[in-house]
């Protein structure tokens, strides 16, 4: 099957999966697929990678997913 459609199916599975993930971008880069975005936990990142490898076992998957930062801010923005 065309890689474009297979990547679309990855996105569909991510939305329907454990993390209900709509914020991850899956893009074809050369012969590989790149995953980018911010996810709520390391567990979600693992789950997303597992789905991608499961759907695309013969395609290299590059992962640049970031786990959300939960630190408080160090200063406010002043809105005069």
């Amino acid at each position: 099957m065309n890689l474009e459609y297979r990547v679309a199916h990855v996105a569909e599975r991510l939305a329907a999966g454990q993390c209900g993930e709509l914020g991850v971008r899956a893009e074809i880069r050369g012969g590989a697929v790149l995953l980018t975005g911010t996810v709520p936990s390391a567990g979600c990142r693992d789950d997303i990678l597992r789905v991608a490898h499961d759907e695309l076992p013969d395609v290299p998957v590059h992962c640049d997913l970031v786990v959300a930062e939960n630190a408080p801010p160090d200063h406010p923005e002043e809105l005069p």
Partner: peptide
Amino acid sequence: QPVIERAFHV
């Protein structure tokens, strides 16, 4: 949260 990259912004 992915935009502000913090637990909250003030």
